[in-house]
Amino acid sequence: MEFHFLPIFTFLSLALVASHAALPSEVYWKSVLPNTLMPKAVKDLLHPEWMEDKSTSVGVGKGGVNVGAGKGKQGGGTNVGVGKGGVSVGTSQKGKPVYVGVSPGPVPFLYKYAATENQLHDNPNVALFFLEKDMHVGTKMNLHFIKSTNAATFLPHMVAKSIPFASDKIPDILNRFSVKPNSVEAEAMKKTIKECEEPGITGEEKYCATSLESMIDFSTSKLGKNVQAMSTEVEKETQLQEYRIAGVKKMAGGDTVICHKQSYAYAVFYCHKTHNTKAYMISLKGTDGTAAKAVAVCHKDTSAWNPKHLAFQVLKVTPGTVPICHFLPEDHIVWVSN
């Protein structure tokens, strides 16, 4: 599933000026977070030409958006893809493989939603979730690390701000990206906007970031600027195989912000801060020798989750009884205060 940027009608020039809205994303990261390493998940979502060339120009018009890079030369147009929401990392229970996808069911990391019949029927005994008591060196899990099909990348902050992001603006949004109203792409975009507009669960502070800059601003407003940002990294894509936990490192800090990539025409992240949540970096070793460093998040209090959420139905536990953990896909980001 791909979206295509169309030719521009108006150009906006991006320059290195004092206003943070005009700073290239990498420069803004360094200015706000000089001591925080940029994780691979973020680097992969930045266009190299926007990072390296200060003369990048971006145009926005009613007919669409086009990005041109390099010393006044207009680019040939940029394609951004919206994947089907496939999950990058899956775990299994009792040795069974994982094939849990974000679509057509609800995103499994949004805890107000019940699992759909499709999710339960297709994979009744598998999920991304596991119990905290099983997170220790020596534990074996059947994991399938796959690359996300969602290739959408960040737009420059000024461009993202200029594009509507609201349910009552959907016809205009679809027109800008030349997306047919009844297409699969359109439904994915409508779903993302709706989820962003709905209130969160009790104790959840949520925000949908439509640019890297807005993600940085939300995360630092909740955690301060002395933070770490992490993402899952795997040496290579593998088939389903057994992995053994070789190390567990609990990340410092008492608060976390977790940002989940959504299906949209450009990179949009559902970010939320929840109470009693801890982040871990798990070292894994596959039977074929593949090494992985997977981010796991453990929720100590699940009492506000939907009782029919996928995690409860797979793990056979009830809300608020035991801590529940899950691995994160490679294109999701966890922010932790130091």
Rank of each mutant, 00 (worst) to 15 (best):
H4L: 15
H4E: 15
I8G: 09
S13V: 13
S19V: 13
Y28C: 11
K30D: 10
L33Q: 04
P34F: 07
P34E: 06
H47E: 13
P48I: 10
E49R: 11
S57F: 10
V67W: 05
G72V: 09
V80S: 11
K84E: 00
T91M: 11
K94A: 14
Y99N: 10
V102G: 01
P106Y: 07
Y111E: 08
Y113R: 08
A115G: 10
L120Q: 10
N123Y: 11
N125K: 11
K133T: 13
H136I: 13
T139Q: 12
K147V: 00
A151P: 05
T153M: 14
L155R: 07
L155S: 05
S162Y: 12
L174C: 08
F177A: 09
N182F: 11
N182R: 12
S183F: 08
V184C: 05
T192E: 03
G203R: 03
K206S: 08
Y207G: 00
S211G: 10
S211T: 10
S214V: 08
L223T: 01
N226L: 06
M230F: 14
K236M: 02
E242R: 01
V248D: 09
I258R: 02
C259K: 00
C271V: 02
C271H: 03
Y280D: 04
Y280I: 04
M281G: 09
M281H: 09
S283K: 05
L284S: 02
G286S: 04
D288T: 02
G289A: 01
T290K: 00
T290H: 00
A304K: 05
H309P: 13
T321P: 04
V322E: 15
E330A: 01
D331P: 04
W335Q: 02
